[in-house]
Amino acid sequence: MNIMDDLSYLRKETLVRKMREIHTDIIVETVRDMCISANLNLALDMEQAIRRAAETEDGKLGKQILGQLIENMDIAKEDGIPICQDTGMAVFFVNVGQDLHITGMSLTDAINEGVRRGYTEGYLRKSVVADPLIRENTKDNTPAIIHYDIVPGDKLTITIAPKGFGSENMSRVFMLKPSDGEEGVKAAVLQAVKDAGPNACPPMVVGVGLGGDFELAAKLAKKALTRATDSHSDKEHIARIERELLEMVNSTGIGPGGLGGRTTALAVNIETYATHIAGMPLAVNMCCHVNRHVTREI
């Protein structure tokens, strides 16, 4: 061995030693727990939004339905029964710190193993078929849908958003033209809400992705659903459109269960991205009142 080889070996060593390490066993455990807790307890902001809505709702059936939803949340929590029987397809947003070293199996395998354990040990419904046409159930709710982002730092941040398909099926992508402007955006979102009506189990949460390209708009719309219902875009003009759209959606009269009332949506959340001079992609991802999302940092 000559002296040069020896030095490069040492340099590598110090580099490796600086990196934080996480073993995938911890990731599997964490994901397992997140699957179960997301399906049993609504995020506090969702729960509070539903309770507040029950007080202000003036539709007769609408009010009755909100009352049932509150009772339902309480039973789910007390008896450990999933809030809704559609415990969803497991969708993840994962931020991987670029200074983090993951040991064990692959990160994707670890997340899927966590889903497998969570959905099996947590008595959650297995709602995934392996092939869209052959439609054979995979029996453990895998594979998950995982969106990765590489971020600065050495942390791993995992968000799970189990997604029910009653509302997912009512989602839309519109390739709007720049000339459609703000009015075009509002009209499209409103149309999607009206088309969804009772199918999306209102009160809904409306996730909107605006900009980017065809697929990024859809991903942003899903990501918007993981924001708290009482949060606002940090862009002033977008926050205004969120407010105005919520008002418009709640003037449709669709109401809880689609049976008349003012509480058609609990929130309209919009995420944006830069886009092309020729386009204005818009995606509307519908979610029901069982808008589940849990985030953990490891």
Binding site: I65, Q68, L69, E71, N72, M73, I75, A76, D79, I81, P82, I83, C84, Q85, D86, G164, G166, P198, C201, G257, L259, C288, H289, V290
Partner: peptide, 12 residues
Amino acid sequence: AAVGGAGALLSK
């Protein structure tokens, strides 16, 4: 129609 998303309540 039963109330969508009230699976825990309806199971009772």
